[in-house]
Amino acid sequence: MKLAGLKSLESAHDDSIWAATWIPANDTRPFSLLLTGSLDESVRLWKADDDVVLERTNTGHSLGVVSVAAHPSGVIAASASLDSFVRVFDVDSNTTIATLEAPPSESWQMQFHPKGTMLAVAGGSSTSIKVWDTSTWQLVASLQIPRPESSKPNDKIATKKFVLSVAWSPDGRRLACGSMDGTISVFDVSRGKFLHHLEGHLMPVRSLIYSPSDPRVLFSGSDDAHIHMYDAEGKSLIGSMSGHSSWVLSIDASPDGGAIASGSSDKTVKLWDLNMRAAVQSMTNHSDMVWGVAFRPPGGAGVRSGRLASVSDDKSISLYDYS
């Protein structure tokens, strides 16, 4: 497996780019779009195959966009900003479909259910995942991390268990969330029930992703500079990969399930071979911390090769060929 740099677009936003995801192709639009969110309070859509071309700029957020998510249908997408609002919009028309807010919960990482029926939002200091129905846009569940029995109400639970990241299992039955204190909590979605914690990190877990090929396997990236590999059902840590020299800010799994890409505050993007459990490549396109990495989902007309996009505090977008 290999990454080859295709294009780096400088000044893609007016300020740090904090989030990126791909909107899958669909019947009406035969190509995927790259969706990025920035501290400049805008969300931008890019046509990115061999070049990165701006499609549209969405405004309306305040305080910087921290997370973006795309519905599997490729029709709608969501963006969340530091002011805790989630804006759900039509990809092609940019009409606002819904504005979601669940005060006092903040909104951090978001992910749509694999079938697109729900949207999960990491709820920050509410120590919960907020789950929204995508047809009615009603809050359908608030999955709360249980308080440790010993804790006093004054304990800094809200700070420790502050939920930063969230991930759906590929079958849509599980939701995992990562907290400031490094714990990962796994929920049974259908029963709305907390299952267990996954331990190993002791520093904030900023990114979570399930393996597309194995629904039990969960990857996590943490400020402790490590990427962990868990058996999310068996509660066990099955791998730990080190190599970044600073926080791991974002991870994504390749569609074939054989590799992981990670972005770090050490300015690098690394590609990890899961068989070797080691970094096989380290890309140094960016000159500042890399907040987002995203593999392009398969599908779309005439698309044969894989793509990886990375976005950074240096305001640039980098596009790589993944093979």
């Binding site: 300020d15 740090s16 904090w18 501290l39 305080l63 910087g64 921290v66 530091l82 903040e106 951090w108 920050g124 200091s125 809200a158 700070t159 502050f162 930063l164 400031m180 505090d313």
Partner: peptide, 13 residues
Amino acid sequence: KRTLLRAIRLSPS
């Protein structure tokens, strides 16, 4: 303001 926003992004809690 931007500097603070960055800090919040780094240290959300």
